[in-house]
Write a protein that binds this DNA or RNA. Sequence first.
DNA 1: ACGAACCGTCAAGAGATCGTCAAAACTTCC
DNA 2: GGAAGTTTTGACGATCTCTTGACGGTTCGT
Lengths: 226, 226
Amino acid sequence: MAVVLLIEDDQPIREGLERALTRRGHVVMQAEDGLGGLRSAVDELPDVVVLDLGLPDIDGRDLLRMLRAVSEVAVIISTAQDGDQAAVECLDAGADDYLVKPYSAEQLDARVRAVLRRGRTQSPDAVVMVGELVIEPRPHRVTLRGEEVALTRKEFELLSYLARHAGAVVSKRELLTEVWDQPFGGGERTVDVHLSWLRSKLGESASDPVYLHTVRGVGVRLSPPG
Amino acid sequence: MAVVLLIEDDQPIREGLERALTRRGHVVMQAEDGLGGLRSAVDELPDVVVLDLGLPDIDGRDLLRMLRAVSEVAVIISTAQDGDQAAVECLDAGADDYLVKPYSAEQLDARVRAVLRRGRTQSPDAVVMVGELVIEPRPHRVTLRGEEVALTRKEFELLSYLARHAGAVVSKRELLTEVWDQPFGGGERTVDVHLSWLRSKLGESASDPVYLHTVRGVGVRLSPPG
DNA sequence: ACGAACCGTCAAGAGATCGTCAAAACTTCC
DNA sequence: GGAAGTTTTGACGATCTCTTGACGGTTCGT
C-alpha cells in the first residue's frame, strides 16, 4: 500500500484510476493540473506521483523537474502516445517509469509496486533477482536457471543497471550516462551491440525476447517472462 | 531478544519453532523457500537467519552466499543429517553455527543467543577456511588439502586478505591500498606478479583456476572450487 | 508507397588488461 | 660486508574487450 498522487486532467480517467488503486489498498490523491499537483506533492508527501504528460497549464517535463527539485518522490510518466519523445526525455530527466495510454489499473498498480520496491532495496551490493535471473554484485556473478552466465564487465554493468530498474523502460541515453559515464550524445550503436551480446548470452533473440525487451522509440526493459 | 528469520520448508517444524522462539521473547519471521527467505532477509533485516539445507528451490550453499552478499546477518545452518558435507561447506562459506535435526527449541534458542553474543567481529587472528585451503595467522601457516604451502610474507598477506573476502571480487586498487598500503596508483603489475606466485604455489594456473579466479576488468576472487 | 528513423548484427580495428619473464632494488641474517 | 631470499618494476606478447562504421530489415509518418 502506498500514497499515490494522480496528476491527470481527464476527469473520467482520473476517477477510474482512483477507484481502482483505492480498491487495491492505496491511498490516492488527485490533481487536475500541474500547479495543483505540485502543491499536493509538497503538502501531502506522496510515495509516488503518476504524472500525465499534456497537462493544460504546465509542460510535463518542466513539472517533472520541479517535482524533482522539491522532493525525492518517485514519478511514473503517463503518456498518450507510444514512442513519445517527451516521455523519453522524462526518463532521461529522472522519471522512474512510464506507461502508454490506455493502460489498465492493474498495470499501473504493478508499476507502483515495482517503483516502491526498488526504492527500498537500493543497495549497490544487493543481490538482484528478475525471474530466474540472479545477479550477485559481490562475486560478480550472474546465473540463469542456476547456470552461470559468463559476462564481460560492461555486459555485467549493463545487466545490473537494467535489473535494478527491472520492469521499467530505460532509454539508451540514460544507459549511456549511467553505465557508460557519457552524458553526451553519440555512440548509441555501442549500447545496441552490448544488448545484442547480452541477449545471445542469455540465450534469447531480439525477435523472440524473454527477459530483454526493446520498446521501439523509447528504450529497453528487463522483466521476468510470462 | 532478537529478530529471527526461519527459512524452512517443513511447515510443522517451522511453526513449532516459531511458537517456541516467540515464547522466549524473539520476533520470528518465516519463509518456506529460499527465494522468499532471501526477500525477507533483505526487506526485514533480521538479526539471525536459521537456514534449512535441502530447500525445494535453492541449494542451501548458494542461498548462504546470497545472504552473505546482501547483509551481515548471522546464519545458523539447520541440517537433517549429521556429518553432512554441505553443512561443513556452509561453515567454510561463512555460516556462524549449525544444528542437526531433530533439535529442541531450547537448543536453537541457545545457539541464537550465542551467535548474537559473539557478534560479527572477525578477529584478525581468526583461522580462515576456504574450501580445503586453511589460513592460520598465528603460526603464519597455510595448508592446502592438509599439505603445507610455503609462502613469503607478502604472498601470505595477499592470500589472507583475499580469504577474508572470500567469494567477493577484490580490485587491484583495493589490494594495493589494503595489502600494500599504497593508496595511490602505480605498480599494478606488482599485484599480478604476486598472484602469479600464489597460483603456482597453490598448484593452479591462470588459465585453469581452482581457487583464484581473475575477473577481467574487475579484479580477483578467491572462492572454493566446485 | 516512399522515405526517414530506428534497431539488430557483423566485422574490423583500436584499446585495455593480464600473465610471465628477467633484472633491479631491497631485506634479512649470518 | 656478503649471500640468500624477497619484493618491485618495466617490458612484452597474448589475449580479451570495447567501440565504431556499415549494412539490411523493420516500423512509422506522410
